[in-house]
């Protein structure tokens, strides 16, 4: 026990050291702890993530197929325009009501996934009251608690969003193949769709972080005494 078996006088002197300032835990350590928390509660994490996946797949699909149809219409591919009109896809593009409806659906999907995240994170905080209290007793700062919960949520958000976007884009392309055949590949608005994917990525990740803010804040503000007294 090298560090604890200092010579008597050194030890005595260190005992009289002034009260110091607690240091922030290095970010990499916080990441490690958050990652383990997810791994241990994998089933719950997957449930939350699946909500995000569904919402983001839907959002991405709506945005990308819309973009693809527009591009095809704009390129003047008349043989497809007729088909698009017949299928009601192109009509949607001009039909304000239908568009509003679609956006309502997208909004609802996002809201459901947001509430899901909020709920899961609140539950996660509640079931860990004692753990949070103990961490604070051991010297964890409020900032670390916030970091841990936000990181946990961000991991789930990024993974869920990435999977959701992939599914959304694949759906768009598969559907496009069905509708327009192989020529579709020449008509994919790559730049536009990349931008949309970027927006979806931001939306999905942002959503999870915003959903975790309140639970994380609640966890951090809890007094250790109350946290440990809490009966669940």
């Amino acid at each position: 026990m090298s560090s604890s078996a200092d010579s008597g006088s050194d030890r005595a002197e260190s005992l009289h050291g002034r009260i110091g300032h607690q240091v922030q835990l290095p970010f990499v350590n916080a990441v490690r702890i958050a990652w383990r928390n997810i791994r241990v509660r994998l089933a719950r994490s997957l449930l939350v993530t699946s909500g995000i996946i569904l919402a983001l797949a839907f959002l991405t699909y709506i945005l990308c197929s819309d973009s693809l149809a527009r591009n095809i219409a704009e390129q003047g591919q008349t043989r497809y325009v007729e088909q698009l009109l017949k299928q009601g896809i192109l009509a949607d593009l001009g039909d304000a009501d239908a568009r509003v409806q679609t956006w309502w659906l997208v909004g609802l999907a996002l809201l459901v996934s947001f509430v899901g995240i909020l709920n899961a994170m609140l539950l996660s905080v509640t079931e860990r009251f004692k753990e949070i209290g103990t961490m604070k007793c051991l010297g964890a700062l409020d900032g670390l608690i916030v970091q841990l919960f936000l990181l946990e949520s961000t991991f789930q958000g990024v993974v869920g969003t990435a999977i959701g976007i992939t599914i959304g884009v694949l759906l768009t392309l598969v559907e496009g193949m069905g509708l327009y055949g192989a020529t579709m590949w020449t008509l994919v608005p790559v730049g536009n769709m990349a931008a949309l994917v970027g927006i979806c990525l931001l939306a999905g990740t942002g959503l999870t972080i915003v959903g975790a803010l309140y639970p994380a804040w609640r966890a951090a503000k809890m007094q250790p005494v109350d946290a440990m007294r809490a009966e669940i």
Binding site: G20, H21, T134, L138, D142
Partner: peptide
């Protein structure tokens, strides 16, 4: 807050 956290971390060991 920071000094309290330091105190809990360095000066005091808790057993529950």
């Amino acid at each position: 807050t920071f000094e309290l956290a330091w105190l809990r971390c360095h000066k005091i060991g808790y057993i529950f």
